[in-house]
Amino acid sequence: MYGILVDVTRCQGCEKCVAACVDANKLDADRAAVDRFTARDGLSADRLTSILPVAEGRFARKSCLHCLDPACVSACLVGGLTRGDDGAVVYDPDKCIGCRYCMLACPFHVPRYEWASTVPYVKKCAFCVDRLQEGLQPACVEGCPHGALTFGERGELLELARKRLRDAPGKYLDHVWGESEFGGTAVLYISDVDLAALDWPARETEPIPHLTEPLIAQTPTIGLGVASSLLGVNWVIRRRMKLARDNDDANGRERDHEG
């Protein structure tokens, strides 16, 4: 399972990763340049990676975090988003119907929509799965000239992150973002400033699907339970009406059934 470690202290904000991403994904560079200023978080359908200023003189790369238990995968009603064994959360344009529930569900506001198109699709970072299969690193990692991004096995990256925290005491905040937030993400961050600007939650959070999946598993139980209890109630009522009618007939007098 792959991952990327982002070291915010090394990022210079040069946006070479963005350029590499635009290049590798064959996005419209002109639009990406405009969205740099106009889009929220600098992400758009033509800009799948962006650099955000997180504090004075501190920058951080933002893109899909590739959660270990992704909300978008759980939310998509046609299964158009899937998480592979390599950890990449990948979008399948052939299934999408354009409901945009993934955009609502993502706690990091990552999936973007091709609003300008009449046949629009969702756009998000796919961890450069094509490049991974060719044995290459993701484009953004390769494009980073300052070593702020490290690609590798997620477990090893966690070790590396802890090692950096250990080796330079006081340099970093004692936290690896992405280790446990929302059940963990494949992209990890270490930083000397707080990363709330990247939509990281302030407190401990469980995976988003844990909020819904236990509930939806109850669907057959609820449906069958309601149906059978209705049948039961109806049987009792009909039985009582019949008994009342028999009783009335026996007494030979009229009664109002409405009660």
């Binding site: 939310a75 009603l77 046609v78 999408c96 354009g98 409901c99 929509y113 629009p120 819904t212 939806i216």
Partner: peptide, 23 residues
Amino acid sequence: DIGLPHRFWHPFVMWNHHSFLFE
């Protein structure tokens, strides 16, 4: 509302039973 209205039938054949929207 949906971006690709011609695919409104997709959830009939493409299932994700984890999704409340699917239900």
